[in-house]
Structure formats: C-alpha cells, structure tokens
Nucleic acid binder design. Sequence first.
DNA 1: CTGAAAGCGCTAACAA
DNA 2: TTGTTAGCGCTTTCAG
Lengths: 327, 327
Amino acid sequence: MSGPTIYDVATAAQVATSTVSRAFSQPGRVSADTRERILAVAAELGYRPNPHARALLSGKHHTVAMVVSDITNPHYFDLIRGAELRARVSEYTLLLVNAEESPRVEWEQIQRLSPAVDGFVLAASRLPDENLQQVAAQRPVVLMSRELPGLASVVLDHVEGCRQIVAHLASLGHRDVLYLSGPRNSWMAATRWAALRAAAEQVGISARRLGPFTPKVSQGGAAADGAVNAGATAVVAHNDLLAIGVMQRLAQRGLRVPEDVSVVGFDDIFAADVCSPGLTTLGGAHVDVGRAAVELLLTAGVRAPDDQPRVLLPTELVLRASTGPCR
Amino acid sequence: MSGPTIYDVATAAQVATSTVSRAFSQPGRVSADTRERILAVAAELGYRPNPHARALLSGKHHTVAMVVSDITNPHYFDLIRGAELRARVSEYTLLLVNAEESPRVEWEQIQRLSPAVDGFVLAASRLPDENLQQVAAQRPVVLMSRELPGLASVVLDHVEGCRQIVAHLASLGHRDVLYLSGPRNSWMAATRWAALRAAAEQVGISARRLGPFTPKVSQGGAAADGAVNAGATAVVAHNDLLAIGVMQRLAQRGLRVPEDVSVVGFDDIFAADVCSPGLTTLGGAHVDVGRAAVELLLTAGVRAPDDQPRVLLPTELVLRASTGPCR
DNA sequence: CTGAAAGCGCTAACAA
DNA sequence: TTGTTAGCGCTTTCAG
C-alpha cells in the first residue's frame, strides 16, 4: 500500500532515521559514504519521501495553487502553461482550481487550499479588493491580469496596448471606437475601457462602450447587433472569443469586415490567426505572464507589503485582416 | 503563520481534540449542540483543517493527479476541464502536471507524486505498457485516450469514428486515404491507423500512411508536401492542429481545399470551426472523457484488476467545408 | 558526523 | 456521546 518509510531505510542501512532524513534533505551534513549507502538502500527498497509528512513539520509544501476565474476560456491556458513550466523548474507542484466566474467559489477554494500550499497565483481574480487583501495576509499571493496596491502582480501593459489599438484605428480614418465590454467585476474590463477612452481622447476621437457581455462566442451576436445599432465603424471586443462571435454575426447580417466594420480583439488566441478574416488583436507573451507570476511567488521571501513588484509585460498589436480604412 | 489547530478549538470549546476532529469528519457521531458550539468556535478562530495532517494519518489525500502528455495541445484543455469539473464535485483537488511528451519526465512526475495523491488520470500517456502496469500496482490509475488490458480507461470510439471518416470520404468518390500519422509512441496514432486501414479495406479503397509527425501546425508544411508528393486526394491528419497546418501549406502552394485535396482532422478544437475552409473533423465530448476518467478513479474502490472498466464514448464526424468530391 | 527523542496537526482505536 | 492515548512519516533540536 504505502511504500517503505525512513524507518525501513534506516534499519536496512544500519543508521538512525535522522541520518536518512539528512541524507535526503541536507546532503552536506552526512559523510559521503554513509549517504551513498543510504541512497543505495533507499533506491533498492523503492523509498519515496512522503510529501505530506514533510510538509506537516516543515511548513513547506512545494506546491502552488493557481486559481483561474474561468477555465473555459482558452486564453488562460497559456497562463496555466507558463505557470506549470516555471513551477516544474523548481520542482514545485501546480495545483489547478477553477473559480467558475464566481467570487464565492473562488473564495472557498482559496480558504480550503490555504493550509496546504505555499502560495497562490490568481488569474483574473473576481474577488473584491478586501478579500484579496485577506488572502494576502494569510499566504503569499501573486495576481495575474489584475492589479491591486500592496499585492504582487503580473499584467500585460494594456494602457500602452490600448493606445496602439486606438492609434491604429485612428490612422485608418476611424473617428470613433466602440468597446464591447467584458464582465462587470472584471478588473481587466475596467482597465481596458479606461485606457481606450484616454487614448481616444488623446488623439481626438470618440469612445463609447456597450455591455457588459460575457466574453464568449455565443455573446457575439448580441454584441454585434448592438454595435450595428450604434452605428459603429470600429469595435474593440473584450476578447478574441467575443470578437469572433461578433464577426460571425456580422457576416450573417451581410456586413463585411473590415469594409463596413473593423473588429479588434484581445489575447491573440490561436483561433484569431485562422479565422477569416484574420482577427487584429492585442497579443502578448501570455506564457510569460504565467511564468513570471510563479517566479514572483517562489521568490516572494522577504518583500515588504509596500514593496510588492508589479511586473508589466509588453503587448503587441497583431495586425490582421479584420481592421481596415473607415468607410 | 499557520493558523489555529484543533487544540486551540478544543480548548476554546471545552472539549477534547478528538471531539473537534469528529465534529468535522463524522458529524453524525457528535451531539448536535456540541458540534454546533465547536463549529461556532472554529469559525470564530478561523480554524481550517490541515489537509497534510489529515492525509498523513488517514491515507486519503482528496487529490487526484492528472498527467498530460503535452499541455501545449489545446485538445487536452477539454479533458482538463472535464477532470477539474468532476473533481470539484467531490471536493477533490486536481493536480496538473505536464509530461512534455517525454516518457521519462512522465515517469518521474508520477513517482514523485505517488505518495501524495489518491490516484492518477493519465491523458494520452506515452509510457510503455510495463510502466503503466507498475504505476497501476501502486495507485489507482485511469487512462484517457489510451487503452491497456487490466487498466481502466476512457476513450472516444475511434474505430467507429474512423469508419465514419472513411465512409464519408468514399462516398465523395475518394479511392484512397492518406493518414498523416502522430507520434511514434502514441497509442492513439496506432489505433487510428489500424482503424482507418481496416475501414478502408472494408469499403474497398486503399489506405496509406506518412509520418510520424509531431502534431503541431508547424509540422503541417512537411506533411502537406509529403501528401502532395504522394498524390493524395484525401488526407486524414492526426489532429486538427496538423490538419490546419496542412491546409495553410496547401493554400500557400496554390492547391485548393477541398477541390484538389480533402482534409480531415481529429479533436474538433475551436479553431477547426473558424478556420477557412472549415475543417471536417472527428469530434466527441472530450469534456466527458475528462469527467468520466475522474469519476472512474473516485469510484475505483473495489474493482478487481481483471474487471477494469473501459468506457467508450461516441464520436461525431463534424462535416465542414474541407472535404469534397474527389477531383 | 551521527543518534535519540520530541513533536508537526490530525485521526482512530479504545475506554469511560 | 465524549475523552485518552497512540501514532502517521518526517524533520529538527540537542547530545554525544
């Protein structure tokens, strides 16, 4: 059932359990040959250290929990991949949990896992600020795609990215952009809208907003109809999924992209490259976001609460066929 | 640091630690009012049971590890989602690990995690049969997208699916199908080839094979060139990613899909629906595969080794524009 | 450099 | 129904 323990190894190797323990955790503090003998015996017996027992005493679990606000969204998979990658490098285990877009579920999961992990990386957390602060008081936390003063975070530079989007659209002659907004409690949605609006003002064009929409393909229909009704010449959808849904509905209604309406998305998911027309979208190294978040968590050591790093990764406006000159 | 323990709760509630323990794990075996008092005190103190301590003694970890052969492949996302979903229902934690297409990494990860989880679900495992048997000897295991006598498994019915593909192609007048094969150590690749071949024979057309190819978009170029060189009129790619890569290369070379070559994929990933032409592909409820695998694992209880369930889920041939009459 | 012994937080007999 | 008492497998003082 549950394999050999250090006792078995100690007996077989004729040493004390503590020596076996040291042979594994502090190789320096055991003489070379005893250690060798122990390792040999351990290997022969098929001994595996029990992570639970280890964690119980040491308080180190070698585990980080990643909470994703909606595991359904393909965009998050790059974050997950990056996080998994970085965790593995340090021989940490990545625990994946889905919050199902529900702050309550997110909170419960975090509370449940809290005593068993070294820290949390939260992807696009939907928790209110106060709750985030509470979590941070218990365990190291790194936010992804969200910022909060006092907490470490990794985000793509959407302010700059939105500026690029608006500049691109303006250069094509558009005098107005319509933002199809994401979920109400999404920090990202608020950030993008603010950035879009500011950028628009700066170049002297108007910015409007519609929504919120659940950022899925299926919601694209409603969003598209709203956009048409608003007489938009250029729409910026909260993410690529929504953008693709918008394009599908537009095509269905006989409107051409980009001749009648230009469409821009966010995330640069794989589908944005293969759909037609190809979707102009704000991409970035999402894998690096995941990677950096775990990196920050693992090195969280001794940073003061008022000295939490905010990592800003560059975005990249990927131009494809969905944007064109204003009609 | 590490919150209150049952001792703190016991003291505060004026009961023994065992009573506190019972109040949480066997609510029935404690009088209603003492339990209520305990829970109240626990809540007030912010007590959270420590999963490690619990696991150490009980041997139940409430955790299942999911090992994915290549987390890069979007197809697995559905499996992951399904697994996460089912795990959550039973308040199990899903531990996600990536094997990076390497049997060695896969083996090491499994060994490392083995003492800390209740079982494994292995997605498209690349391990040789013997290793799988060894793993199964230590812990309950459920295979996804792979079968092995003596082990529980959940797979889509590719035999039937391949028959549908071949029938579809034959009905369009194709007299030959070319399978662009997946990785050499992929059970799926072998299964698909065997099924395709058998189905082709049955309807009296020829089947050929090229590869193996790493099933990524980037490999589609080589696969496409090989297919053209072989004079194929219909190709069946190991997955949608490869199929999309093939279509891109074909377009680049001025060949039309489906007029010159029909293309079929596997998995029905999101991109298959939005690429152009839309990709005909063998889909299925992948989320259910993930769900069923975890389900099987959690109910693994007392099944004999020779009585391991093999769940076969239906496939569905999704017809899109990439297949057409033979030229 | 190595051994003895005391727990980490919790559960599971066994009593009461 | 509740309390007492051993541990689960490991790390970590503290001696030797």
